[in-house]
Design a protein around this nucleic acid. Structure first.
Length: 229
DNA sequence: AGCTGATCATAT
DNA sequence: ATATGATCAGCT
């Protein structure tokens, strides 16, 4: 790498200022500053956008089950947006725990991951090469009361459904803002899961995802001048 | 066009 | 295999 990785930000305002400093720049440009080149094969480097932004901002918890910015407890999420500025994809949150207790909402990984998020919109039209994609205006977010209620309701319903009917009865069609979808290298990857009757079975790992409709509403509230906590 | 199920890269 | 980072691809 040509450039040195920035140190971790010491505060939310420092992180936000850094992230907003990326607005309008292309991924090719910030990659060059890190001594990298944007991959030509964007179909294979699915996580590259998130990783380069993490690098630029000094995230220090990569590949750990913790917030990206450990000291200040902030999670970084890039938000792929189309030419209209609307989210083009769902947002992965975390894996669905398949063993152990159900727990309660406020102790769930979903709640903890989403408690404080730095959203970084990035252009993501499929025909646009990675190096030409521009970064948008980053913003800090926590769920407001309505959003948290909606997330909590989905989480509790999905969790109860798994316990009552089994994971294999839960599809991506369930959940208004939070959904469950496969999360693995491929469909043959299996992990252990306790079925409702107590038997241990093998199943494809799943993840919690935010629907694009939900993240789109977060963006819309911003543009409407909504005040956020 | 939107959505669901499947998939790709990397680190531990 | 499990977790991180996500987007792809095909069907409705």
């Amino acid at each position: 790498m040509a450039g040195a990785r920035p140190s971790a930000p010491a505060s939310e305002s420092e992180l936000l200022a850094r992230a907003q400093g990326l607005a309008g720049r292309t991924l090719g440009r910030i990659a060059a500053e890190a001594g990298l080149e944007a991959p030509a094969d964007q179909k294979r480097m699915k996580g590259w956008v998130g990783e380069i932004i993490e690098w630029c901002l000094g995230a220090d918890a990569a590949a750990l089950p913790e917030p990206d910015f450990r000291a200040i407890g902030v999670e970084l999420k890039t938000l792929p947006v189309n030419s209209l500025g609307r989210p083009a994809e769902s947002t992965y949150v975390c894996v669905v725990p398949l063993t152990g207790e159900l727990g309660e909402w406020k102790r769930s990984n979903v709640y903890r991951k989403l408690a404080r998020v730095l959203w970084v919109p990035v252009e993501a039209d499929r025909g646009l090469p990675l190096r030409h994609r521009r970064i948008g205006n980053a913003f800090l977010w926590s769920p407001d009361v309505d959003e948290e209620q909606a997330l909590r309701t989905d989480w509790e319903e999905l969790t109860e459904m798994i316990a009552r009917d089994g994971l294999d009865r839960v599809s991506a069609r369930h959940g208004r803002c939070l959904q469950i979808r496969p999360k693995a290298a491929h469909a043959r990857v299996l992990t252990r899961h306790a079925s409702p009757d107590g038997a241990s079975i093998q199943t494809n790992p799943r993840g919690f995802y935010l629907r694009a409709k939900f993240t789109g509403e977060i963006l819309a509230a911003l543009h409407a001048g909504g005040v956020r906590p």
